[in-house]
Write a protein that binds this DNA or RNA. Sequence first.
DNA 1: CGAAAACCATGACAAATGTCATGTTTTCTA
DNA 2: TAGAAAACATGACATTTGTCATGGTTTTCG
Lengths: 239, 239
Amino acid sequence: MSLKNSKIQLQCIACQSRGDSHFSSLKDEDLEILSEHKSCVTYKKNQTLFYEGTRPMGIFCINSGKVKVFKMGSNGKEQILFIAQKGDFLGYRSLLSEELYGSSATVLEPAAICFIPKSDFLKVLHSNPEFFGKLMKAVCHELGVMETKLAQLSQKSVRERLAATILMLKETYGMEGEGSEVIDIVLSREDLANIVGTATETVIRLLSEFKSDKMIALEGKKIKVLDADKLLHEADFYG
Amino acid sequence: MSLKNSKIQLQCIACQSRGDSHFSSLKDEDLEILSEHKSCVTYKKNQTLFYEGTRPMGIFCINSGKVKVFKMGSNGKEQILFIAQKGDFLGYRSLLSEELYGSSATVLEPAAICFIPKSDFLKVLHSNPEFFGKLMKAVCHELGVMETKLAQLSQKSVRERLAATILMLKETYGMEGEGSEVIDIVLSREDLANIVGTATETVIRLLSEFKSDKMIALEGKKIKVLDADKLLHEADFYG
DNA sequence: CGAAAACCATGACAAATGTCATGTTTTCTA
DNA sequence: TAGAAAACATGACATTTGTCATGGTTTTCG
């Protein structure tokens, strides 16, 4: 089950901006408005940006680091919806639907994150139809991605979903490592289980199996993909 | 797991319009543009409006009847994403993200449905910022709804999800019937299973149990809710 | 550093759910 | 309206997955 989504990215004066951003249509004057009242903060691991059920006051723009966005279930178990990273921004969706946050966001690894107040963001948004249009397009795309995740959660086995998740992580965070791919993100087994939508022990067991079958190697928390084709087969992408 | 979503509704000249539509901001001239090239067709049960993987050419506006929107899994099993009814419109999301349809739509009961070509819809949309804004708000809301469904699919048991689904259906399609609520939608057990995300037999068994426990009554395909509180408890809404 | 906490791993078992088989009932349609 | 097809229902059983228990390992932090 793929967590890869078309990340919404925002160029931000003084932040390291990415040239491939979907939001390159922003003019300098708009960027200046966004920068005017923004605050940039460094977060440590496990700090929380916002909590489900609270009122959004602005948007968060991730300059570096990784953030998990999740919903808490009544059993105390998290369901991770996606992992945001450099260039993504968070919290604009609840802002636009004028609702309380529907999910929480917690830092996975040390992060530098800007906060832009609601009013500045909305001002730019409404004065810039092209920007608005691109944002609309991105939200529509994300809705499609979320529907795909829902269907795969319902239709694929845990084993298939874990294989698919490992492949997705490789796509998103893969680094070359002596002929194979090392996944460059520190995820606890519990977090991985909360992405896949299963119990921690089940993930641990399946990882052991994948390792026995030479599909992956485990070096501490790091996962190394040894045989992507075999994983692809496990993920049932051939039907 | 609630399927209730903030339905996006559109007033349509010559169609029976609903006063409570979110899109009452449309002026007559806009409605005229929308009506100009629209075609209204009557569909029978099991006819399909559009197929996953095909290119959207416009939007569908449901005047009467009910339509299931679903994704097909590699095992041939459908996952129903939501059920659209009178006043809803379909297909605008893929249009806006400029992607192929990510799901299919099939008529559940005889329906009258208008089709408005892409160009007319986009013309109105782009000439009417208020309308655009409302649509954006609705899409953002739907994304939140979809995330909630995803989390509940992952975190709740089949039993809990079925109870929640019955309550949702009662909310959406409930009719007064001799002191209790008859759900006015004809869903096969298979469709119900594909909403809940489980096997048909499991749904049948659980319905029998709910019936034994006096929570529901079954009259052919119709489901009657006898004890909503008890169902609510089954759905674990008390945590 | 060193103790405490968190995390990882594995076994044993229970529970939930899916699958297959079979028979009945309802619905469709020629 | 009769026969066929689809849908419903239920039993038996297999499989998957979750839960609990236990012990080893790593990480954290005073």
